[in-house]
Design a binder for these strands. Structure first.
Length: 425
RNA sequence: GCGGAUGUAGCUCAAUGGCAGAGCAUCACACUGUGGCUGUGAGGGUUGUGGGUUCGAAACCCAUCAUCCGCCCCA
């Protein structure tokens, strides 16, 4: 075992059961996206490092990217996020796209970090964005999409909550407290980390960071003020729109939500599992007003969020929300009675497939108990037996593996009988 | 990059210095025209790898690799 070649650290191996979960998430993502009229798109998996150097924060680019030299001597990166590619692709066709652009995507990303619960080096991520509209109502639509998705996988508002804040509001608070603008970013990061630290340690951390005691007290009062949003016209309009969209039960105002990415400028939001067993955000996003101009396009505002498949999968598992795993899409197994009737079974299978059924045939003659056991393990609903008696009379034994009942039917009536069992099973 | 833990059968784990085991899973048989249940039996191991201590190591020591958990960062 030790000298077998192992999978690359942090990569994902999707056995059929995990693949079914990934496809389940993808299916719900697609449905939520399409319900709001968004178009699916995709970007390259490999990009130049320069694309990220501009905006994605130093940690992500220098420490967490998979970067290597290609055979031509150029440095390329496995994409760690999608938004910069989105900005470039939008900028390249800015003159011909119909705005507002509403796009979504679900694909693989790579980040070189230490694998742990909820974090791997290779992951799938849902990205969804609206570009060309700068309004709290547009922000509300993206939050509504997130809530729609959470509801669709079976997470109700008592199990998952989307916390909302606004960076402009927080910056005006920082300003009011006399914190200089050049410290806003570091103070934001400190706020972001507060929930993970002991209160006394956080206080010391803030005082070390250049704030005085009065500013610390003021900041703590701000962060405890659940009504702060009422001072923001943006957030007031946002909550009115969320109410109209029918998902306000999922949303709470929280002045502690800041988010790490540099490009957010206005509304920011993060969803969490309320039981808190996993302290990682299910999804996160916000408004970014400057990203397009930063990659060379005309100024254009956008809002969007991203959701990783790893945390989502863990939560679905912990909540018992995984769909039942069906090992095979085949509804029926055609058994092979013996060597002389082997090809008869193959012929029967071909006829059933021609009628549109997903059917598996046992690949070789074997004892019937073995074949039935196989059908059972694969959770197939129907088994068909074609023995000497049946062939002689032009019949097929059709057995309902759920109820255990079996009957002989004429070959012509077989498809209908199978469909009947599948409908009731 | 930093810190902590764990590596024994396909899986989950036991054996704490003295014969390497159990449950589950697999396969066979009971049951050669019928799965789930039951019973009987079988196969399966260089105890992650390399070295050291010892009469004797799965266990103790050193190194190494891997995995998990946490920090940093973030989906």
């Amino acid at each position: 075992m030790a000298n077998k070649i192992q999978a690359v650290k942090g990569t994902r191996e999707f056995y059929p059961e995990q693949m079914a979960l990934r496809n389940f998430i993808y299916d719900k993502v697609r449905k939520a996206s399409q319900a709001f009229g968004y178009q699916e798109w995709e970007a390259p998996f490999i990009e130049t490092i320069d694309l990220y150097a501009a905006k994605s924060g130093e940690e992500l680019v220098k420490k967490q990217s998979f970067t290597f030299e290609d055979r031509g001597g150029d440095f390329v990166t496995l994409r760690p996020e999608l938004t910069p590619s989105l900005a470039r692709m939008i900028a390249a066709k800015q003159g011909e796209l119909t705005f507002p652009v509403r796009w979504w995507s679900f694909g693989p990303f790579w980040r070189y970090e230490q694998p742990q619960k909820g974090r791997s080096r290779e992951f799938f991520q849902w990205n969804i964005d609206m570009l060309g509209v700068n309004s709290p109502e547009a922000d509300a639509e993206l939050i509504a999409i997130a809530a729609t998705f959470l509801r669709s996988v079976g997470l109700d508002s008592s199990q998952a909550t989307i916390y909302v804040n606004n960076r402009r509001l927080m910056e005006s608070e920082f300003n009011r407290l006399g914190i200089p603008a050049e410290n806003w970013l570091s103070v934001s990061n400190m706020v972001d980390r507060r929930s993970k630290m002991e209160p006394a340690k956080w206080d010391a951390y803030i005082l070390d960071g250049g704030l005085n005691q009065t500013q610390l007290d003021g900041l703590k009062a701000t962060l405890a003020n659940g009504d702060l949003w009422k001072q923001s016209e943006e957030l007031t309009r946002l909550f009115a729109a969320l109410n109209a969209l029918g998902i306000s039960e999922y949303v709470k105002y929280d002045p502690n939500i800041m988010r790490g990415l540099l490009y957010y400028t206005g509304t920011v939001f993060e969803a969490f599992d309320t039981s808190g067993s996993l302290k990682r955000a299910i999804l996160g996003g916000g408004r970014y007003d400057n990203l397009l101009a930063d990659v060379g396009g005309q100024p254009l505002s956008g809002v969007g969020f991203a959701m990783g498949d790893v945390v989502m999968g863990i939560i679905l598992q912990e909540k018992g929300l995984l769909p039942e795993f069906i090992p095979t899409p085949a509804a029926a197994l055609v058994t092979v009675f013996d060597e002389s009737l082997w090809m008869k079974s193959f012929e029967l299978t071909a006829e059933l497939r021609a009628a549109g059924l997903n059917v598996m045939v046992y690949p070789e003659p074997a004892k019937l108990p073995k074949q039935f056991k196989f059908a059972d393990k694969m959770k197939m609903k129907v088994a068909l037996v074609l023995g000497p008696d049946e062939v002689e009379k032009g019949l097929v034994v059709i057995k309902n593996l759920v109820s255990g009942e079996q009957v002989q039917v004429k070959k012509e009536a077989l498809v209908e009988s199978v469909l009947g069992i599948l409908k009731n099973a």
